[in-house]
Design a protein around this nucleic acid. Sequence first.
DNA 1: TCATTTACTTCGTTAAATGAAATATTCAAT
DNA 2: ATTGAATATTTCATTTAACGAAGTAAATGA
Lengths: 162, 162
Amino acid sequence: MNCDTVPTTDPNNDGALPPEVRALLGVYALHTRVRVAIEDLSQNDGLTDQARHLLVQLDKPRRLGDLARITNSLPSSVTALADLLESKGLAQRHRDERDRRAFLLSLTPYGIDLRSKMLQQASELFQTVTGLNDAQTRTFAELSDIVRKTIYDTTFQETSKC
Amino acid sequence: MNCDTVPTTDPNNDGALPPEVRALLGVYALHTRVRVAIEDLSQNDGLTDQARHLLVQLDKPRRLGDLARITNSLPSSVTALADLLESKGLAQRHRDERDRRAFLLSLTPYGIDLRSKMLQQASELFQTVTGLNDAQTRTFAELSDIVRKTIYDTTFQETSKC
DNA sequence: TCATTTACTTCGTTAAATGAAATATTCAAT
DNA sequence: ATTGAATATTTCATTTAACGAAGTAAATGA
């Protein structure tokens, strides 16, 4: 095989793509790679990728319906994921006393511990996976904060009755 | 309901997260939202989300195995997705003459057209979804280019025999 | 009070991912 | 050249996850 031909093709066969598309291509690539990396590190926790996604979102007790919106899944899917997290002793359902139809899902101490370990691992992976240096990572984080806040707000404002 | 309590909670209950984690949280959120938005716009194309992901990766003819690595799916899954794209007249398999075990998947004119329409739509969504202004978007794109290039290289270097 | 909407659960169905086995080709070593 | 091992893809049976309709309970609003 001729190894000097097409061994590592450059990612820009797309010509001058608009910045929005370039941004999204990187986001998709990074999402894919980080998911793989976390899966590789979490083979013995008995969780699925979706369950881990839910775990990460539980920075505080959240309603199952909100988790469904955040993760873009159906209520019935979140029910199953919450069951899984509960069965592993990572989270617990509590009635929401403001609205007793709803459940709040909150992490147990064990869940909090696993969540921070996962975030720590993701943090350690980041530089290797992305190739960004510290300054670039900080810039990326600042922009990412804006994106996250925008998405967070729009995710909940649509349904808000206030 | 008391609407001044907890209607739109701020996304930073996580305290001072490391920049790597903040970066990833935004990436996950953006990935989720863009996927939803594209799905909403593509209800009549008969494609799945995975098939669209493959379509976007086909900036040039690519081997099925490479597509499997890029999208982190199994060869057998890519076979099915390639079948779907072919059945819709969007792509075609060709033997790779450098290695006749492999297939190259390339877009048809119709596939090229649909792909650019999808990228165009994604581009238009970007500002609304992310809340980033033009300058921020350009900065994001530049960092995203680095990330994409790093991931692209590592995805193929691991298996490279050169 | 009563009808309607909302939040969640249950469970049967559908769709997608998985992985083992088969085929064809290449590569490496004799 | 021949042989054996490795690689690229496909097929298909199985497992797994997503979907969605129907049900329960609580809140909302007339």
